[in-house]
């Protein structure tokens, strides 16, 4: 695992202090991103700073065009900031070459996409296994199988392990995507609008599943969403407006419990229902190709 920075009592630019010996797995320090658009420039992110602690369940929210996806791209090391510093597990990403960034993504990050982005030629088991095939780590076949079976079970897809993505509903596809994101045991899982292509019931069940895995595996989940119900379940909410952080709130356990009580009860029910939903069922809002 990468060196983990301890942000002990350190002042993060942007005005927040990380308490005690909590570890910052992600740090953004005065990050900007400017896209050229013809002869003009689009300032997608205008100096954003925040830190994400290990094991957090963090929601980045805000209206369209507020910079959510751009920030996730930079945390995900698939885009670079125009200025400022992005640190993943204490490693400054701007100093890394493409090969190193790719390796960092493989070891440290998992991705969940709005349109699932499963590999259509691979079945459920193979899609989840796929990230494991990219690294140099050596595992026995039995070890790999055991881990993937665990993930399949964790996302409730045991009966579908030999199904191709086209044979699954939207909710089931997103469950596969969640399991795939966790396959390499990453420190951080990034989810860009993971519920946007799902109906609200399935969306809640997906978020509840992510929350459960966040608790059980101590994996940091960073997701972007518009949905206020889903935002309420997060431990840490970063609200963006026009490329700037307008709110950065950590909730304590009591607050979270209170906020999550309503949404969580609903999600618990839907999780049980959605795990077994029929292929091509009502779950998928948009027919995004995976």
């Amino acid at each position: 695992m990468e060196r983990v920075a301890t942000v002990s009592e350190r002042q993060i630019p942007g005005g927040r202090t990380v308490e005690g010996d909590r570890q910052a797995v992600v740090e953004l320090i005065d990050v900007t991103k400017v896209y050229p658009l013809g002869k003009t420039e689009v300032h997608a992110v205008r100096g954003v700073s925040f830190a994400v602690e290990k094991g957090e369940f963090i929601s980045i929210t805000g209206p369209s065009g507020s910079g959510k996806s751009t920030i996730l791209n930079m945390i995900g090391c698939i885009d670079t900031p125009t200025s400022g510093v992005v640190k993943i597990n204490g490693t400054e990403t701007s100093s890394l070459k493409d090969k190193q960034l790719t390796a960092l993504r493989h070891k440290t990050l998992g991705f969940i996409f709005q349109s699932f982005n499963l590999i259509p030629v691979l079945d459920v088991y193979e899609n989840i296994e796929f990230p494991l095939l990219l690294g140099k780590e050596k595992r026995s076949k039995a070890e790999t199988r055991e881990w993937i079976d665990f993930l399949i079970e964790a996302v409730g897809l045991q009966p579908y392990r030999k199904h191709k993505p086209a044979e699954l509903s939207g909710g089931q596809r997103q469950r596969v995507a969640i399991a795939r994101a966790l396959a390499t045991k990453p420190t951080i899982v990034l989810a860009d609008e993971p519920t946007a292509n799902l109906d609200s019931k399935t969306g809640l069940s997906i978020i509840e599943l992510m929350k459960r895995l966040n608790r059980e595996l101590q994996t940091t989940f960073i997701f972007s969403t518009h949905d206020p119900k889903i935002v309420e379940i997060a431990d840490h909410v970063i609200r963006l407006q026009d490329g700037l952080v307008v709110e950065d709130v950590r909730r304590n356990g009591a607050q979270r419990q209170e906020l999550a009580a309503g949404a969580g009860a609903a999600a618990g029910e839907t999780a049980r229902e959605s795990a077994g939903e029929a292929p091509g069922g009502p779950a998928q809002k948009a027919g995004g190709a995976s």
Binding site: I78, T102, R105, G110, F113, F130, T184
Partner: peptide
């Protein structure tokens, strides 16, 4: 893009 995101080298 997905494969690259998951750490597939060029």
């Amino acid at each position: 893009g997905t494969m690259r995101a998951f750490g597939m080298q060029k």
